[in-house]
């Protein structure tokens, strides 16, 4: 019983960690989306230079462990740019976001390429510019096709946020570890935290599934990708 009372005391502390974790997830996914989508477009519609720059970017960020990227940015790049005072949380968002952009761009690229050439042809035949055709015809379809794959980014990013412990972001795992050190209670805390992650994972996937249902169109995109 003592354990439960102790744990209850710590709930507000852990809750702040939970908020940081959620903040990391949402901010990283958003950064990944904001950069990933234009990168996908660049890789398909861009010139040779743009295409190769993006390919190298994707290769780099997909080829490195999260922890190496975190160390590189937190101890290396940011201090070199005289930005040592940038909080770890921001560094983490930058790293997870830029890395997410690499993964997301490939999801979007696959989705865009799965759309038949005829859609662009028909749009252009009506007098749409290339940009209008992409904006009003290609993207609305591609985003729907990409959604299931994109949804899988959520659990990946969620579990990756725990690695931000390595640079001292005050997220859930960091706080749990501190709590373990203070209370000498280990297994119950770790297992409870694991439960929280699994719950977050489940809730997020449920929400994304609902979004998929809500944006689905009869007979469209089924079985694609």
């Amino acid at each position: 019983m003592d354990i439960i009372i102790i744990l209850l005391d710590w709930i507000p502390y852990l809750f702040l960690g939970l908020l940081q974790t959620l903040g990391l997830v949402l901010a990283s996914l958003a950064v990944g989306l904001i950069f990933g989508l234009p990168m996908a477009l660049g890789q398909i519609y861009g010139n040779r230079l743009i295409k190769s720059v993006i390919s190298v970017y994707v290769w780099f960020f997909r080829g490195l462990p999260v922890i190496v990227l975190l160390f590189l940015f937190f101890f290396g790049i940011f201090p070199s740019l005289n930005m040592s005072s940038v909080p770890p949380f921001v560094v983490a968002v930058v790293v997870l976001g830029l890395r997410g952009a690499a993964y997301q761009s490939q999801i979007f690229r696959g989705a865009i390429q799965s759309i038949s050439e005829g859609q662009m042809t028909a749009a252009r035949s009506l007098g749409m510019t290339r940009f209008q055709a992409i904006r009003h015809v290609i993207l609305p379809q591609a985003l729907r096709i990409a959604l299931p794959g994109w949804s899988n980014e959520y659990p990946t990013v969620l579990t990756d946020t725990a690695i931000c412990y390595a640079i001292g972001v005050q997220e859930l795992l960091t706080r749990a570890t501190y709590m373990v050190a203070q209370t000498y209670i280990t297994m119950p805390i770790y297992l409870a935290i694991a439960g929280v992650y699994i719950l977050l994972n489940y809730a997020g996937m449920k929400a994304l599934n609902m979004l998929e249902k809500k944006t689905s169109i009869p007979g469209f995109g089924q079985g694609a990708l």
Binding site: P155, L158, T159, D160, T161, A162, I163, Y165, L173, A176, T177, V180, T186, M187, Y190, L191, I193, A194, Y197, I198, N201, Y202
Partner: peptide
């Protein structure tokens, strides 16, 4: 799949 790998490692090394 739901538990971060790092947490799993903590459980195995610090928890067990």
């Amino acid at each position: 799949k739901g538990c971060p790998l790092l947490l799993l490692l903590f459980i195995l090394y610090f928890g067990l």
